[in-house]
């Protein structure tokens, strides 16, 4: 067991190293650097050169790679070129915001998806089943920015129920803890709903499919024969088994908690990782890009691993 775990860990480290190195060379070889982004007429070519030297961009690529690698291994993430602060601080500010939005977004996605699936699976092929599946697929099939635009138009501008952007009003800093919580919840509503609406269709499809599969199983028939109500059979017997594939889906969603969605963050002025990443990429902010990549890759690998572990724990059949 321990050797298996260690082996898996080693493989994961290799994956992280592969991806981070790949990104390093991708960014280093891509045309343009921090200095070429500066299009200001005040900036003379000499100033550009000075910027390059200041951030060590004039050194040969392999030297930069080696110093990045040694720094990272020793736990030093370096300083962001763009924000001129330690990368650690930049990430520490953005990460919690992304995690909050992603968590509640995924939560809504799951709850909505499950609710839809249960209603649909209780009477498969009925009118309601068809309608709901059409609607949830419709939301799934809409580009995210359009769903966001519709939500904003409806619930922020036509009926101003929720604030259209940001995590809190500037005055909110003076509020009590409870007040701040309510403030965040209000601001979270529309972006989280956007995540939930665009994702629930997929969840509903998975769960509905596996619920229908489970309904064919002998144990369901047996339960029905024992006189259990249809609802009870669906909820107590079939649902837990039907949820198994969701573990994998959730595991694959883990990276979303640290990477965030650029489109949603831009539209709702949400100060998360998506925006930080985008800014870092356009400025070729190598330390920030590298740190972000290591973080996201780790999340991907960890998500896979967690899904496997959870799966074998939940379903002893696949344990070997």
């Amino acid at each position: 067991m321990t050797t298996r775990l260690l082996r898996r860990l080693a493989a994961s480290l290799i994956v992280v190293w592969l991806v981070a190195s790949g990104t390093f060379f991708l960014v280093a070889l891509a045309p343009g650097d921090l200095a070429s982004k500066m299009a200001d007429p005040r900036i003379s070519p000499a100033a550009r050169q000075r910027l390059r030297e200041h951030f060590g961009l004039h050194r040969p690529i392999w030297k930069r790679y080696v110093s990045w690698l040694t720094d990272t291994v020793s736990g030093n993430l370096g300083d962001s070129f763009l924000f001129r602060r330690p990368v650690r601080e930049v990430l520490a500010a953005a990460l919690p915001n992304t995690a909050i939005l992603a968590f509640w977004g995924l939560f809504l996605e799951l709850v909505l998806g499950l609710a839809l699936a249960l209603v649909q699976a209780s009477k498969p092929h009925s009118f309601w089943d068809r309608l709901l599946s059409a609607l949830s697929l419709g939301a799934y099939a809409m580009p995210t920015f359009l769903v966001a635009a519709v939500l904003l138009w409806l619930f922020a501008y036509t009926f101003p129920l929720f604030p259209p952007s940001h995590m809190a009003e500037p005055q909110a800093q003076g509020l009590s803890f409870g007040g701040r919580l309510a403030e965040t919840a209000r601001h979270l509503a529309l972006p989280a709903l956007t995540v939930g609406l665009t994702g629930c269709g997929a969840v509903a499809r998975y769960v509905r499919g596996s619920l229908l599969d489970e309904k064919q199983q002998a144990y369901v028939l047996a339960a029905l024969a024992r006189g259990c109500s249809k609802r009870r059979v669906l909820l107590i017997h079939a649902l837990p088994n039907a949820l198994l594939p969701m573990i994998t889906v959730l595991g694959l969603s883990l990276p979303f908690l640290v990477s965030g969605s650029l489109v949603i963050e831009v539209i709702f002025s949400w100060p998360g990782m998506g925006q930080v990443f985008y800014a870092a990429v356009t400025a070729r902010d190598v330390p920030l890009i590298q740190a972000g990549t290591v973080l996201v890759t780790t999340a991907v690998v960890a998500g896979n691993w967690l899904a496997d572990v959870a799966y074998s724990w939940a379903d002893p059949r696949i344990r070997r």
């Binding site: 200041h54 300083d79 001129r84 602060r85 995590m167 002025s269």
Partner: peptide, 26 residues
């Protein structure tokens, strides 16, 4: 200087001073 967070060292001389800065927000 290039890795100091100057938002914590703010002493200004203009008509307005900084009350708060929430990165990427306000």
């Amino acid at each position: 200087w290039t890795h100091t967070d100057f938002s914590r060292r703010l002493v200004t001389s203009g008509p307005f001073r900084v009350a708060s800065h929430v990165p990427n927000q306000t």
